[in-house]
């Protein structure tokens, strides 16, 4: 069933510092939407606002999960995840001193996810065979690429309906970036997810995105209704391609 996200007129920041101003965006059911912007423009702040980590000062964030609509502003992070919205944060935030399989099992803490652990674990190991090989290794001892795989897999273990990913490409070698982006597409299709992905890497993000928003200084500067529209936009050319 349908799961979508609607952010309306959102203001958010840190203490007296206002970062987001009047941000509105929508991620429709089954869509992959890219949130594009260079460093420091507010992508992470927007993601953290959706996840209840940053408290917005105005506006609303509505999530429709399997036909029921929930207002997310004011909810705790754990409640939001429990609704079925998983988040792969900046820096991955694995539990470095726990093993790969312990990290995955923690992903399934959500009561709804506990019944489907075996199936989800199989799916994760199928998608990321490397994780199966390393199941008993400490998460902190793995390479950056493997850690990003584990972060994605751990998020999937919560059996989410919607997935938010903050800069999956950060810190990865170019070849790994395109492989990670492909995997996100694979997961999205396999699990019928709705995806919002923040990225600086425009060319990679646009490969799998249906649509995208460009955020500049905490405001939505451009909403591209298709990958093509984004590709052909003058401002984006200026920003990313130096043209």
């Amino acid at each position: 069933m349908a799961s979508s996200l609607t952010v309306a007129n959102l203001d958010a920041g840190y203490g007296a510092v206002r970062v987001l101003e009047d941000v509105s965006l929508r991620v429709g059911a089954g869509e992959t939407v890219a949130l594009l912007g260079t460093n420091g423009n507010g992508k992470s702040t927007l993601m953290k606002s959706v996840m209840g980590i940053v408290r917005p000062s105005a506006g609303s964030i509505a999530a429709e999960i399997d036909g029921t609509t929930y207002e997310l502003v004011g909810r705790s992070t754990e409640d939001i995840v429990d609704l079925g919205i998983a988040f792969v944060p900046e820096g991955r935030r694995l539990f470095p001193k726990l093993t790969v399989s312990e990290n995955l099992l923690l992903g399934a803490f959500r009561p709804t996810a506990r019944t489907s652990i075996a199936r989800n674990m199989d799916f994760c190991f199928e998608t990321f065979p490397r994780l199966k090989e390393r199941a008993r290794q400490l998460a902190g001892s793995m390479s950056g690429g493997e850690q990003q795989m584990l972060a994605l897999a751990r998020a999937l273990m919560s059996a989410p309906r919607m997935l938010l990913i903050d800069e999956p490409s950060v810190g990865l070698a170019p070849l790994l970036v395109s492989r990670t982006i492909d995997k996100i597409k694979e997961l999205k299709t396999g699990y019928d997810l709705t995806v919002l992905m923040a990225e600086q890497n425009f060319t990679q993000a646009i490969r799998i995105a249906d649509r995208g928003y460009v955020i500049v200084h905490g405001r939505i500067a451009f909403a591209g209704e298709s990958a093509e529209a984004l590709n052909n936009n003058d401002m984006i050319r200026e920003f990313y391609l130096g043209a």
């Binding site: 996840m51 992070t77 754990e78 429990d82 539990f95 919560s158």
Partner: peptide, 11 residues
């Protein structure tokens, strides 16, 4: 190890 990450596990 990471209290904030634990919240992301719905705990």
């Amino acid at each position: 190890q990471d209290q904030q990450a634990l919240r992301l596990m719905a705990a």
